[in-house]
Design a protein around this nucleic acid. Structure first.
Length: 414
DNA sequence: TCTGGGGTCCTAGGACCC
DNA sequence: TCTGGGGTCCTAGGACCC
């Protein structure tokens, strides 16, 4: 048996923690750049606000219903997530942190699962203030389903017997299954497969043909035979990316240089944190595809690095070279993306045959900057080429404080 | 004026090897 | 008249997840 614990309306719940007067009121959290709605309290859901609603298009309704709006505050959500996960790890020796707000626990050998689920839920809410739902079932896919079933009531759900599982599958839309997206749902609907039970009852060969090997795994999982193991080890990432839209589109090359350098610096931090070096750096520019009638271009370049690197200096140098190559006049650029690929473990990098360059000095500088920034706060030391972040930095008009990660933002109690 | 930012896995097809 | 039978690696594109 496996449990899936999922935080309810996670970002909205985090914001409410430090604004208790908002309990029972509609709250939404926006994506980066205050673009779309990405989290909603139950009250906001009830008012009809949808995931992905474009903020400036629903602004009138937001005002009308006095919905409290927040910009994304990942410093806060990341820290609250770590607290929740730490508590959850007490409840099982085998834990997979699946996303910022979800966690699988191995429940093999555990008994009285109903009681245990309640204990988990009550402990998390008592110790962190974050409400969670707990779904327990024989496989990950079914645990996901169990979790979804109690999401509305915000409680717990254990699916164990065949009768319980069959009854649950019967009322569950196939498109809501973990692993079935919009495309597959449409495809399956065409074959008359509407519910999760319909999918489970299909012949295995048919599933394999239409949904490939992933569908076969899902089919077994729906039969209560686990096929997707818990990921207990955190693996090094295969790609690392830093991509962000600008607060305002620009055609100014100087701004693009600043933004690209800044994202690349951030990318290099992520690489160092993961213990990886890049062998290839990709740079891509975007115009705003939503603006019909304006000239569109999405130029991209892939730069093989002379030496695997994760220091800011070498990567920014490569990125500037790439940017120069793909930049064109006559376009309004709205976003830049830098991506590190061909990652190799730091310390296992291949030296260059014809030079004795090994990046030692640049690596030292970056590591020192990490240390200082960890101690004095992100951005204390930056690369000069990043500029002052005025023109292109993202919109965050409704940002809350870093209540749990910044001394000056900690709430005082009298 | 304003529409997110990350990731993963799988398959088919091409290029190459002996 | 007739032209094999294994492999690997890489990439682009498509699907999915939060």
């Amino acid at each position: 048996m496996v449990a899936l614990i999922d935080c309810n309306n996670f970002y909205a719940s985090c914001e409410r923690l430090f604004r208790p007067e908002l309990n029972g009121k509609p709250v939404v959290v926006l994506s980066n750049n205050d673009g779309c709605i990405i989290a909603r309290s139950n009250e906001a859901k009830a008012l009809g606000f949808k995931m992905g609603d474009v903020f400036h298009l629903v602004q009138d309704r937001i005002k009308e219903h006095q919905v409290q709006v927040f910009s994304s505050n990942y410093a806060l959500y990341g820290d609250m997530s770590a607290r929740v996960m730490t508590i959850l790890a007490r409840f099982s020796p085998q834990v997979e942190v699946y996303s910022i707000d979800e966690c699988f626990l191995d429940m093999d050998g555990f008994t009285e699962l109903d009681n245990y689920a309640h204990t988990i839920r009550n402990t998390v809410i008592r110790n962190t203030g974050i409400p969670v739902s707990v779904g327990i079932a024989p496989s990950k896919t079914l645990a996901k389903l169990a979790n979804r079933m109690c999401k509305k009531t915000g409680g717990t759900c254990v699916l164990e017997s065949d009768e319980e599982i069959t009854a649950a599958l019967k009322d569950f839309e196939v498109g809501d299954l973990w692993g079935i997206g919009r495309r597959y749902a449409k495809k399956l609907n065409k074959f008359g497969v509407v519910t999760a039970l319909d999918l489970r009852n299909l012949p295995l060969e048919f599933v394999k043909e239409k949904l490939t090997i992933q569908g076969v795994r899902m089919w077994y999982e729906l039969h209560g035979k686990p096929c997707i193991p818990l990921k207990l080890k955190i693996e090094r990432k295969k790609n690392i990316c830093c991509s962000r839209g600008f607060g305002k589109a620009t055609n100014d090359y100087a701004h693009l240089r600043e933004a690209t350098a800044s994202y690349t610096n951030r990318l290099s931090q992520k690489l160092r944190k993961d213990g990886s070096c890049a062998t290839v750096l990709n740079v891509k520019l975007y115009t705003n595809a939503f603006k019909v009638g304006t000239p569109q271009l999405f130029p991209t370049i892939s730069i093989p690095l002379p030496h695997p690197a994760n220091n800011a200096t070498d990567l920014i140098k490569a990125a500037m070279h790439g940017l120069k190559h793909i930049f064109r006049h006559g376009y309004m650029w709205s976003k830049v993306e830098v991506m590190a690929t061909g990652l190799v473990p730091e310390g296992e990098t291949q030296l260059h045959l014809f030079t004795n360059y090994n990046g030692a000095v640049n690596n030292k500088v970056s590591k020192l900057m990490d240390k200082i920034n960890r101690h004095y706060g992100d951005g204390t030391l930056r690369m000069a080429i990043e500029g002052k972040h005025h023109q292109w930095t993202m919109r965050r008009a409704f940002l809350s404080k870093e209540y749990t990660t910044k001394w000056k933002d900690v709430v005082g109690v009298r």
